[in-house]
Design a protein around this nucleic acid. Sequence first.
DNA 1: GTATTCACG
DNA 2: ACGTACGTGAATACG
Length: 855
Amino acid sequence: MKLLVLDGNSLLNRAFFGIKLLSTKSGDFTNGIYGFLTMFRKIYDETEPDAVAIAFDMRAPTFRHKQYAGYKSNRKGMPEELAQQLPVLQQLLKDLGYRIVTCEGWEADDILGTLSAAAEREGSACVIATGDRDSLQLVSSATTVRLMSTKFGQPQVTVYDEAKIMEEYGVTPHQMIDLKALQGDSSDCIPGVAGIGPKGAGELVQKYGSLENIYNNLDDPEIKPAARRKLEASKDNAFMSYELGTIRRDAPIETDLSQYVPTSGDPQSAGSTMVRLELFSLIEKFGLTAAPAQETTVAAGRPEVIELPDGAPLLARLEDAGAACFYCHWDKSGELLSLIFAHKDILWRVTPDSAFLLAFFTNPLIKKHTHDIKPLHRLALSMGCKLESVSLDTALAAYLLNPSATGYDVLRLAAEYSVPLPDFEQEEYNCAAVMPGLCQALQKAIDGNNQRELLENIEIPLSFVLAQMEHIGFYVDSESIKEYGEKLQKEVESLHDSIIEQVGYDFNINSPKQLGEALFEKLGLPHGKKTKSGWSTNADVLESLRPMNPVVDEILRYRTVAKLKSTYCDGLLKVIGPDGRIHSSFNQTETRTGRISSTEPNMQNIPVRTPIGRELRKFFAAEHGVLVDADYSQIELRVLAHVANDPAMREDFLQGHDIHASTAARVFNMPQELITSQLRSRAKAVNFGIVYGIGAYSLSQDIGVSVKEADAYIKEYLRNYSGVDAYMKEVADSARETGYVEDMFGRRRYLPELKSSNFNMRSFGERVARNMPIQGAAADIIKIAMIRVSRRLEAEGLKARMILQVHDELIVECPQQEQEQVKALLTEEMEQAVNLSVPMVAEANAGKTWYDAKG
DNA sequence: GTATTCACG
DNA sequence: ACGTACGTGAATACG
């Protein structure tokens, strides 16, 4: 018989601080349960035990980390969250069929000791898995300790048997107690002998064998006088430490090992818990199925699958039904392999041919319910037709329900919303089979959140507009980009040579580490501020170093030019399509605020702030006619004025004042005429900060005044804009109460951070609570505008097409003769998209290139 | 894979 | 006592 005993508390601690979730989406916490189960699985597979016991302390776990990193510096959570995870983990382990052992008044270590002793008595082997070294004293010929650690977020194991302990400590396992009694252990509050550390303790124990024997031989001349004095002074402490450090082996717990043989547990409950925790990768490893209990029993086996080489006969049935619920099976290259309709408990697998697709797409009598509609819109566009009557997209619905999820795969959603899963071999059949249930569950949830308007009038129509923008693309002058890139390359090389010459040796300027060495060691410049794996070399730091050495200027210039060359010139050239245009992807379910994001390439971060960067925009052009670029003016501040119903701010916007100058006049208590450009720009920074949830320190950094002064600005701001002050307090309070924030359209974001005990994380939650309703509403407003613009361009029979959105900016490409009409149309639709208590203002400009069209 | 830096709103 | 504004994506270095 082989017994595996886990030290639950210490492993959970290790797991929480060490094992990282696979997801990289910012804001994810390290999940202790995930880490624990990962470690557990690894140990289990390596040891193949017959019996398993998992020991926990009765009291809440304690933590040895003195400091917990905040939200920004890394994304780990903090112990309070871990304490909340503990009961969940224990129940999960029980459901998995393992026995949890706790004992009032006894520590987990004592349980390890008692069970290993029981195993030894029975002549069984025992493996102890733990994260700390206290249990090494339990090692024997029958008992080994597997010490868990983490490296790069992955679990690592070191196996300790008698030989390994001798090799590492030079003592027997039992002598580990004597060792600890001498050297102490601050984390366990074991004093030891003051002044004796690991080295001294090791020598003494090796020579005399035990603590007792050391004190019996205190007169031995080989003991140095200093050591003797220390030993004498701490004699009581030493023997007390011995008692404290000895793990007890007589805890009143079940010692019949057969009682620890795993049972079948409650796999359905375990499965549904793991789904709830989003531990999808582990479900398989533990041999569970994703679907929760009752559904698996309800699921009446697999639906029938009917292959339809020609889908035409199905169309009439779908038209009769008035709706189609289906799943699109795409291959990796983006080819549509099949459409699988879930209709009347049958899966109809249709091989798509263009006649069928055309008839299906354009039939307005068939309402489409599917998952991820945008690629299908694009397919329709590429066929020259339009996909009509989309009424539900499960990915978009799930995004509205929780924009913070890491992904929106059909099967994951099915598990989350408790839709029964048939176990087809082919994944696409499973996906199609869950669609009707998933649609129903999501519709219900959307209605429950009052998000139907948002889904049906914003997100679903928008997906078509985004597909259109992707399909049309943005023309670029690739030859000119190439030339510009070569010019930049020359400058990069000459800057490189000059920098290397001034520093005095060759190094990689792109490496922050090597650059730090060059600046702070070789050149002896003051290593500014921030660290973490070295000194920071970011632009802020370099800026402050600029007056001290001319090479810093060239490094800054090098960074700028190298960035333009690699990210923009090289990066853009790589993604130009055969039609000479760039077809970016717009992701509609990525951001937590409701904005869209752009990838491959990111068209929303093309340089504009510096003259040299802005040059690039000369290569983004209208292929034939012109570009019309329309911008919202101060959209976020206008939204704030409206939602906070702030009289002063509303007045400023209603009167058409320059908002930053007006803010300056209020905050600095001066007449408008006396506001200098410096004061205006400070007020602008304050306005910015308010939208982000401001802190005096950051504001002071931003505008270069003292923290005290910045704090005074904020106070004065809130005094003048009392509506904003009240709103900011109210929104955070309501978020704490409900656990989420909402914008004026019902777009929602959950904020678990607000419950955190970590100041930084909680503060982050509060700032997000203040910012999201503003950023989210602004995102919704421009989404509404996009839909209206797109519809009007079509209704008015214009050739003009929207090709890009950059958060508060829309770009349309059109023939020269449509220019004025399009400018008016854009301005009008953007301004009329919503009716707030302050006017919305948009301005449009036209030009041959993006550079020219941007005012 | 993670960290750093920097581009945008 | 602590770190320091919201939301993104891409390139690069490095273990």
